[in-house]
């Protein structure tokens, strides 16, 4: 079983191991191999002294160098942050609509904006920015509050119809379910549905209803007004759906979509990066801001245009505004 002998062919001693007649020759290993093995053992010992190694009940030994992969990552992030500082400063130092003229800055803004969008915006607007019922599609050429980059930056900075930011864009469509009869609403819905096909907004009985209730905000031409976030009713884009049931529901309940303000949370540089990103998604409008005052001049809380609702009732109390999911009519 374990009998050493000299192999006839090679003249080498066998180890005595025998597997079904196959024997192992006892050729010595090279000595440097042994020293290499000792060197690796020594290396391992030294390594465990200097680097985190031995697992303990909670965590592991730290190693005298205090090195850690997490620390390494933190250093890398800090280094990248430092490298990006010039771009963030650059974003703050130019007018928002000038970002595009600086290729390097625009590139940074779009890359950073894309990352910010995925983290902060995609929950509502979708990872492809295509939106959903009640959440605007940011890829198309239709903008409730304006599609110039300054408009977009303002919307991101202050949000829409939120209570946290006094500069939030604000407007409110009344819930006409309390003011009009079901029949009137159904007629109005059919009328509104026909507007994109070129129907005269003010003709017919439903046109009269439109003139009395809707035209104040949406305009006599029903093309809306980005100053007050009133949607264009003649285009092909319907935030809350274009079938009759959705339109009746929208008219009855009065949508109240809310977007939180991001200015404080993200900081101005990131807001600008996001604006640059959203602006180049395919729908951004070119041009200078309308004017400084116009951009800042927003319709205040409860500042519902006069004549909204046939009864001319009081504007809703902003403290009693419904939650967006109730108001949006996504269902």
């Amino acid at each position: 079983m374990s009998e050493k002998r000299i192999d006839d062919v090679t003249g080498t001693e066998t180890t005595g191991h025998n597997w079904d007649g196959i024997e192992e020759l006892n050729n010595p290993l090279p000595r440097w191999w042994l020293w290499t093995f000792y060197a690796t053992v020594l290396f391992a010992v030294i390594y465990t002294i200097f680097f985190p190694a031995w697992p303990l009940v909670s965590g592991a030994t730290q190693g005298v160098l205090g090195w850690s992969t997490r620390g390494e990552v933190a250093r890398d992030i800090a280094q990248i942050d430092e490298g990006q500082q010039q771009y963030r400063e650059g974003l703050l130092s130019v007018d928002v609509h000038m970002i595009r003229d600086n290729e390097e800055l625009q590139n940074y803004a779009v890359q950073a904006g894309a990352a910010l969008f995925r983290n902060n915006c995609s929950q509502c607007h979708g990872s492809g920015a295509a939106g959903a019922i009640g959440y605007p599609n940011l890829l198309d050429d239709d903008w409730l509050w304006g599609g110039r980059i300054e408009d977009i930056a303002h919307t991101i900075r202050h949000g829409i119809r939120n209570e946290e930011d006094p500069d939030a864009r604000f407007s409110q469509m009344p819930a006409f379910g309390e003011m009009l009869t079901e029949g009137e609403i159904a007629g109005l819905a059919r009328h509104v549905q026909s507007l994109p096909d070129g129907a005269d907004p003010l003709s017919g009985p439903a046109g009269q209803l439109f003139a009395d209730n809707c035209a104040t905000c949406h305009g006599d031409d029903a093309q809306g007004d980005p100053e007050i976030g009133a949607p264009d009713l003649t285009d092909a884009i319907w935030l809350y759906g274009s079938d009759l049931a959705s339109l009746e529901d929208t008219i009855s309940r009065g949508p109240y979509g809310v977007m939180p303000p991001w200015g404080e949370r993200l900081g101005e540089a990131n807001v600008r990066a996001l604006a640059a990103y959203v602006h180049q998604l395919g729908g951004g409008e070119a041009g200078e801001p309308r004017s400084e005052t116009n951009v800042e001049e927003q319709i205040g809380e409860g500042d519902v245009p006069e004549g909204a609702g046939r009864t001319g009732g009081d504007p809703s109390d902003p403290d009693e505004v419904p939650f967006p999911e109730e108001a949006s009519g996504t269902d």
Partner: peptide
């Protein structure tokens, strides 16, 4: 082809792919 979303409807009813 950009497939998120597969297409975008523009305000004049045109359909755009990216």
């Amino acid at each position: 082809p950009v497939r998120n979303p597969t297409f975008v409807t523009l305000s004049d009813g045109a359909v755009r792919n990216a």
